[in-house]
């Protein structure tokens, strides 16, 4: 179908090519490490579905020799690598790199909700090109600018991609809040202003507050969420691809291991405090003579049966 459309509207495309010499060519290698959970795998699958210019690869065996990814990318003619590293079967880290010598960003991914489990009614063409919507905060800091550029090249589908479909029917939103990057994907649904469909879904929060502004008096633009949802915390930026000096480190990032350990210790601390308090209380009561024997063991009665008839 796409091919048919291309042939039908080929002349306009050619005209476009004629005016613009430069091309945006991107190919993304998507893969994960071993030990991902089903949810991580589904997220990967969702992203793969949304990115027609990507190539999925088998799980990488190693978590230490990540420089192997550079060769792998070269093998598949990819100039972007999106590598998901799972740790402890629960934490997911994303490495975004531009081999052979671009920077590498390592991010911690949390709050993952895949399309499968979200039950959003939005849908879009497989292989259509998204609009990438960035928060203005991305322009404020150097490391965020780098991250934005990486996102643009990784998630933006180039025009010349092989499996691309000709329309624009979804938007990817990247927003910075709380030092993290929040990612959302929406379908763009246009409706004629007269016929407004009632929102017959649980996502009333998504559709209800949409300000209805007429765009050129033609259409109402509305967004319906598709999924997936996830939040990324940038941790480290390396200068070259999976190697090189660290040029940015997020000092506010606390590793999930640390958080879990703290929680555990806090719990243990609570127990210790309680037992200490109990002991103290007992001693105090003993000193005040409130306990039967002053908190001490009863002294042996010299006249008791056990002593007399021992």
């Amino acid at each position: 179908m796409a091919a048919v459309y291309k042939t039908l509207s080929g002349d306009s495309n050619k005209h476009e090519k004629g005016t613009e010499g430069r091309k945006n060519r991107q190919r993304v290698l998507i893969l994960s490490s071993r030990g991902v959970t089903y949810r991580h795998r589904h997220l990967l699958q969702d992203l793969y579905n949304l990115m027609p210019h990507s190539r999925k690869e088998a799980k990488l065996d190693t978590k230490t020799k990540l420089y192997q990814l550079n060769e792998l990318a070269e093998l598949y003619n990819c100039n972007n690598v999106l590598f998901f590293e799972a740790r402890k079967g629960k934490d997911l880290y994303a490495w975004m790199s531009k081999p052979p010598n671009g920077p590498t960003v390592k991010m911690y991914i949390q709050n993952i909700h895949t399309m499968e489990e979200l039950n959003f009614i939005g849908n879009c063409l497989k292989g259509s090109r998204p609009i990438l919507s960035f928060d203005a905060a991305f322009e404020k800091q150097a490391h965020l600018r780098v991250i934005k550029e990486l996102f643009t090249q990784m998630f933006g589908v180039p025009k010349t991609s092989r499996k691309v479909k000709p329309f624009v029917d979804h938007v990817m939103g990247f927003t910075i809040a709380d030092g993290k990057v929040w990612v959302r994907v929406y379908q763009i649904s246009e409706s004629e202003p007269g016929k407004k469909k009632p929102a017959a879904n649980g996502e009333a929060e998504e559709t209800a507050p949409a300000p209805k502004k007429k765009k050129g008096g033609e259409y109402d633009v509305e967004l319906v969420e598709i999924g997936p949802r996830f939040v990324m915390t940038p941790i480290v930026i390396q200068e070259s691809s999976f190697g090189g000096p660290i040029i940015y480190e997020n000092k506010q990032f606390v590793s999930p291991n640390q958080i879990r350990a703290d929680l555990r210790k806090a719990k243990a601390g609570r127990y210790n405090q309680r037992t200490e308090a109990q002991l103290e209380n007992k001693l105090k009561r003993g000193e005040l003579g409130l306990n039967t024997h002053g908190g001490r063991k009863k002294e042996k009665d010299p006249l008791s049966d056990s002593v007399l008839f021992a």
Binding site: L132, A136, A137, F138, K148, K159, V168
Partner: peptide
């Protein structure tokens, strides 16, 4: 600056969210 908008389709909002 040399690319048409349709090549990258990325938009940065004017004001931070």
């Amino acid at each position: 600056s040399k690319l048409a908008f349709s090549e990258h389709q990325s938009i940065t909002s004017d004001e931070p969210t």
